[in-house]
Design a protein around this nucleic acid. Structure first.
Length: 795
DNA sequence: GAGCACTGC
């Protein structure tokens, strides 16, 4: 051990320097041992970090509390009284190197004590200690998301019960808390790290796609997206790294949460040591309790301001017009306070913003004594972040001092219902509609439909008016309709989605029977059948419904099965570099920007990248141009702007591509390209795509010009007008079927019927086909019989 | 000749 620099001599000298009180930073170190250290709190001795907490402190005659702050606490027998004593004690037992609590910690603790959930700590520990599963209901402002995981930490004491993982590393058994959204996982983790007086990414961390802010040896509390925990479960069916799992926002019923609930119900039965807490905001607790074997309920009140609700006396024939009228009415008649209006989509919102602005300006001009200035701000997810930020700008000031107040109106999609919170909203206008995803298994199409919202949604919307002070909510439907027409809860996502991906994941999670799996809400059998059928055609499942080796690998890619398949086969076509790009570009939002005022310029810019054989190749061109022309971030944003491309989406594509490439490497899948000069360069790429998407092909109708019919379901479809395909080939492969004003196929590429027969012979067996396609396929097969000899001749 | 509700891996 070194004798020149002991921990005790190091600290005082450092302190002098930091204070700036030393005359010169280049002053030589004081000769010999420094004078004895001044009285200070117990110090941790870094050479003793292998010892239990209480022995790690350097004994000093002045220090009074050298005992373990956790002395007497038995994991999972901890009481509220004990936990409070530690929280209010001197030493932070959770920091990796124990140290006294900071002043900041004490300030935050004082505020935490005001949270409704804090008052129920004793009740929480009673239920937590004696039950494996519990259900918690806490409305907005109860503090459940930040406090409950901490309460669990005080009971599990995860840092004192480390275990060796398969890699031999000694790590704490973690507490996981899942969130449906990335931003929530990040921001809550940050907040809780502050509350516990530890560093983010060390003791308390978060894991979201593309970002892992945790440390294997030290992290014991981890916030994560629900999808991320599901990914982890695919390779660790018992979730052995966790001692407790908290599913937050379970009422949102995301696909990932629903699958996790079914899975955890099984895991909990296999692992009696695993605790599960399901947290929800709604009153539908009974359903959760019943599902989880009558688990006990802890109910915590919320903390929001009252919101007064108004209904229209008669049904409104035109909700858009009614919404605009209501905004102007509020503006003229109500006290100061901002307005939030819920509409269904981008076009509707932009339209409403224009109309509100025009009418409000006129009102302010003709009647300046009655109406202040109005600032109208649109909000939807595809809006660039800078414009989204406008919702946080303050309301305009009155035009004249003491005149009628200025007001801000935010016209938003559902994004303001859960994902984004705007402070200062006092009035909410709720027409009662939103766009919702629906899945039709019969024609295998997901589409968006404007539908009435649920009561739970309506309550959530109203609640947005009461975040900072009492508010008002104007519902543009009658009270009778509220009572009789609105359903209690929105249908969970699992009932509204194509489940191809989910079924693959479930198999990979070790679920044998997908039909008898204990779903909280079982999807339609037909939806599962459609998924099984697709996965069987893609050779991910064998005929007995078991995962094939190919299926095992497909499940590891964060992609739809079709995309995963084309990526995995791409090395066989010598084009995996290119397919990686295409898969990434298809996984991010549209890269083409088309402002209403500059459509022609935008279309011209897009034409520069167009590939005549199809949109997939156009996407490849865009990515190549982006990488070639944008060596660094500063030039990238300008180049994207000039070319009417979304920089955000392209950066995201780059991220996704890197992640996919790492997965390819993990499975030793070759990264290769056909030389660009080779005439097979594009053919190889199109063939690889066909291997994944042979089930999404349309055939040109004999009669109508430019019209197509899908092969399996005989749906009449039109190529989407945005397509770069410059001709109408006999067969086109499409990435998406979109149901709007008409049936469109979007992102399309020409394919040859010969390829379809070669790469998907079972699917294109003429015996299963009808009409013209059947004849074409028969013709090719007949020719092939002859053709095989001519091929030999050529070789 | 049209649209992208919202998330997530």
């Amino acid at each position: 051990m070194s004798t020149t620099e002991t921990p005790s001599s190091d600290r005082p000298s450092k302190r002098t320097k930091m204070d700036g009180s030393s005359s010169s930073s280049s002053a030589p170190p004081p000769p010999g041992p420094p004078p004895g250290p001044p009285p200070q709190p117990p110090k941790e001795n870094p050479y003793l970090s292998h010892l239990p907490v209480e022995q790690r402190f350097t004994s000093s005659s002045n220090s009074t509390s050298t005992s373990d702050p956790l002395a007497g606490l038995i994991p999972r027998k901890v009481t509220g009284k004990q936990a409070r004593a530690v929280m209010e004690g001197d030493i932070n037992p959770f920091s990796s190197t124990p140290k006294p609590f900071s002043q900041k910690y004490r300030d935050i603790l004082a505020k935490r004590k005001d949270l409704p959930v804090y008052a129920q700590m004793d009740e929480f520990y009673e239920k937590f200690n004696s039950n494996q599963i519990m259900v918690m209901i806490g409305e907005t402002g109860s503090g459940k998301t930040t406090q409950i995981p901490q309460f669990v930490a005080y009971s599990d004491l995860p840092h004192t019960t480390k275990q060796k993982g398969p890699d031999g590393i000694l790590a704490p058994r973690m507490i996981a808390c899942t969130q449906p959204r990335r931003v929530a996982a990040m921001s809550v983790a940050k907040r809780v790290a502050d509350e516990m007086d530890v560093s983010l990414g060390k003791e308390v961390g978060y894991t979201i796609r593309f970002e892992d802010a945790t440390e294997r040896r030290t992290t014991f509390l981890k916030y994560m997206t629900d999808g991320m925990l599901l990914r982890e479960a695919m390779n660790d069916h018992n979730l052995e790294r966790y001692s407790a799992i908290i599913l937050d926002e379970a009422h949102e019923r995301t696909l990932a949460t629903d699958i996790l609930m079914g899975l955890l119900k099984e895991v909990v039965a296999r692992r009696p040591d695993l605790k599960l807490i399901v947290m929800s905001a709604t009153l539908d607790a009974l359903k959760f309790q019943k599902y989880f074997n009558n688990a006990p309920l802890l109910k915590v009140p919320g903390r929001t301001f009252p919101v007064e609700t108004f209904y229209t006396p008669e049904p409104e024939p035109d909700y858009l017009e009614a919404a605009i009228r209501t905004v102007l009415m509020i503006h003229q008649a109500e006290d100061a306070g901002d307005i939030l209006v819920f509409l269904t989509g981008e076009e509707e919102i932009e339209d409403a913003c224009k109309k509100i602005k025009a009418e409000a300006d006129e009102l302010a001009n003709t009647n300046p004594d009655l109406c202040g200035p109005l600032k109208v701000v649109p909000l939807y997810s595809s809006l660039p972040p800078a414009q989204q930020q406008r919702i946080f700008e303050p309301a305009p000031a009155p035009l004249t001092e003491g005149g009628p107040p200025g007001r801000k109106v935010v016209v938003s999609t559902n994004i303001a219902e859960t994902s984004l919170t705007i402070d200062g909203i006092v009035y909410v206008v709720d027409p009662g509609f939103s766009k919702q995803k629906v899945y039709n298994p019969r024609i295998r199409v997901e589409s968006l439909l404007v539908s009435p919202i649920s009561k739970a949604s309506a309550q959530q919307r109203a609640g947005r008016a009461g975040r900072t002070r009492p508010g008002k909510c104007f519902r543009l439907y009658t009270e009778k309709d509220w009572a009789n027409e609105l359903i209690e809860q929105s249908y969970p996502e699992i009932l509204r989605s194509n489940l191809a991906n989910t079924v693959l994941e479930l198999k990979k999670l070790g679920i044998d029977n997908l039909v008898t799996f204990d779903y909280m809400d079982p999807p339609a059998p037909e939806t599962i059948m459609r998924a099984l059928e697709l996965l069987n055609y893609l050779a991910a499942f064998d005929d007995d419904g078991n995962l094939t080796p190919l299926g095992e690998i497909m499940a590891e890619f964060p992609l739809d099965p079709q995309l995963a398949k084309m990526l995995i086969v791409s090395p066989e076509f010598k084009c995996s570099n290119e397919i990686l790009t295409i898969a990434a570009m298809l996984s991010v939002p549209n890269v083409f920007v088309r402002p209403n005022s500059q459509r022609q310029q935008a279309d011209a810019a897009k034409a520069e990248f167009s590939h005549p054989d199809g949109d997939h190749l156009t996407l490849l061109n865009v990515y190549h141009a982006y990488k070639t022309n944008c060596p660094d971030a500063s030039t990238a944003s300008q180049w994207c702007w000039q070319n009417y491309l979304s920089h955000r989406a392209l950066m995201q594509a780059d991220n996704v591509r890197n992640q996919l490439q790492r997965t390819m490497e993990r499975f030793d899948l070759d990264l290769c390209s056909t030389p660009f000069e080779d005439k097979r360069y594009y053919i190889n790429i199109r063939q690889a795509i066909a291997c994944g998407f042979f089930m999404q092909v349309a055939h040109k109708e004999g009669g109508t010009k430019g019209g197509y019919t899908t092969i399996k379901d005989n749906q009449v479809v039109s190529p989407h007008p945005s397509s770069s395909l410059d001709h109408t080939p006999e067969f086109v492969l499409y990435h998406e079927f979109v149901l709007t004003t008409r049936n469109y196929i979007r992102t399309i590429t020409e394919v040859r019927p010969e390829w379809l027969l070669e790469f998907a012979p079972a699917y294109y067996n003429p015996n299963n086909m009808e009409g013209e396609v059947k004849r074409i396929m028969q013709g090719i097969l007949a020719k092939k019989g002859v053709g095989s000899s001519s091929k030999k001749k050529r070789v």
